[in-house]
Design a protein around this nucleic acid. Sequence first.
DNA 1: CTCTCTGCAAAGGGTTTGCAGCCGA
DNA 2: TCGGCTGCAAACCCTTTGCAGAGAG
Lengths: 149, 149
Amino acid sequence: MTKDPYTKFAEFIARKKLKMTPQRRRILEVFLSEEGHVTSEELYQKVKREYDGIGQATVYRTLKLLADSGLAKAVEFGDGALRYEILYGQSHHDHLICECCGINVEVVDPSIERLQEEVARRHGFKLTAHKLYLYGICPDCQKKASGNG
Amino acid sequence: MTKDPYTKFAEFIARKKLKMTPQRRRILEVFLSEEGHVTSEELYQKVKREYDGIGQATVYRTLKLLADSGLAKAVEFGDGALRYEILYGQSHHDHLICECCGINVEVVDPSIERLQEEVARRHGFKLTAHKLYLYGICPDCQKKASGNG
DNA sequence: CTCTCTGCAAAGGGTTTGCAGCCGA
DNA sequence: TCGGCTGCAAACCCTTTGCAGAGAG
């Protein structure tokens, strides 16, 4: 069975001979309570509400740590800022992003995954990771666009 | 039949009521003579060699223009800098990047393309673009890794 | 002549880093 | 105690912008 994320992080910290601090605990909690894809800045703002005095840099550093520990994953939507999503207990997925309203849907298609492996193999590469971002217009925005003007 | 890129750019310039300047001409030439995926900085350095006095900003602005005109395409490999590749006369392709040596292979797989369309449709999205980056270890680096310690 | 373009340098946005003191293990 | 951690602010990197003069159409 899988350990809860706090334990997982604590173990990571111990294994790397790092230290568990109130800041790290708090950042992890807030991060896990988030739904979507947070930027460091967003997380910093939320943590700061109940933990005044915390620094931006600590949030940046901790998010990197979370990514290293396997609890978080960095994703780029192309808006300039790096975002992080919860990796823990989630299955792999890709992103379908509306160019109009910015809404983003997590999608997964095993056939695509399989084909990616195959393409890599065909070129002699051993696949370690991939990023797939699909950009389009979501149903709502399509309706709005056709409804008027 | 297809027009040569210079004509295509000239027409784009005219259509948008912009102006053709020596700088833009030179940047386009150097850009077209490049093979891979240049950053603005790299292009700036090369253009500067024979066109002293040209400014960084002009290169940035011109690359945007080239992307608008359909001659160039922006790609991000996740190394912080935006890169541009020649779009003119090239078929669509995705990128297979070696995490070890950074080499990058352009790949294309129609089945993947088709499946992407389908995933989007399944969610009611009208697909406008996509980015697919595959990360792995290239054959050479695999050999090096297994060859010695 | 007009309106866009240019080079410069400064500003901007996101992220990283150096440092002195702090504090978990 | 010891070495990692923190907040701060400055530094960084890439990119954009404001401006006054230059030059294409």
